[in-house]
């Protein structure tokens, strides 16, 4: 019973903390844009928190540069359990186009460092896709959200292709 209530509360109040792991800024701006009047994530109970200590969902962007690597692990550890990670942007999901040829200071995406629960590719993904990713993450916890999700999918055709679920990785 208590678990059920706690689960309900978590689904209804996912606070996010945004972490930039060396992205170009575009995804970060789109994440903030998702909180703005047009998309208004607060109607799903999502609040942007400044401190990882108060967050449930870490939204990570960028290919993870060598300099930020230790910091992202620390931020991940600072967040209290239960916690989830959403990787945003093509560099966040794979490190491309920055990693690879000629590069010397970037890793290959967020999941090379910490477990990721949801991927949002796109350069940058639209705020709708970011909203959708967070909703979909929550719907894996709560089947009831499927209706909201279906409505969302109907209103923006093709949005389900914008998000990819992560392999469940042991923390």
């Amino acid at each position: 019973m208590l678990d059920k209530i706690a689960g309900w509360a978590l689904r209804k109040s996912p606070w996010v903390c945004h972490f930039n792991g060396g992205s170009c800024n575009a995804c970060d701006i789109e994440i903030v844009a998702a909180l703005m009047p047009r998309f208004d994530l607060e109607r799903f109970g999502i609040l942007l928190q400044g401190s990882p200590r108060h967050a449930d969902v870490l939204i990570c962007t960028g290919p993870i540069t060598h300099q930020i690597r230790d910091r992202i692990i620390r931020v991940y550890e600072q967040a209290p359990e239960p916690k989830f990670v959403v990787a945003v942007g093509s560099c966040g999901t794979s490190g491309r186009p920055f990693c690879g040829k000629g590069a010397y200071s970037v890793m290959e995406g967020v999941d090379s460092i910490i477990p990721v629960h949801m991927y949002v590719p796109g350069c940058p993904p639209r705020p709708d896709a970011i909203t959708y990713a967070v909703l979909k993450l929550l719907s894996t916890l709560d089947p009831k959200l499927a209706d909201v999700l279906a409505e969302f999918e109907k209103s923006i055709p093709g949005i389900e292709t914008m998000v990819q679920e992560g392999e469940p990785v042991a923390g």
Partner: peptide, 25 residues
């Protein structure tokens, strides 16, 4: 006032319960 829809009515309750159930570091 900020031209947004705002949270649903149970939001503060959900926030509080969630925080109570989270890990205490």
């Amino acid at each position: 006032l900020q031209n947004r829809q705002g949270p649903p009515w149970y939001q503060p309750l959900a926030d509080t319960i969630k925080l109570l159930s989270k890990e205490d570091i």
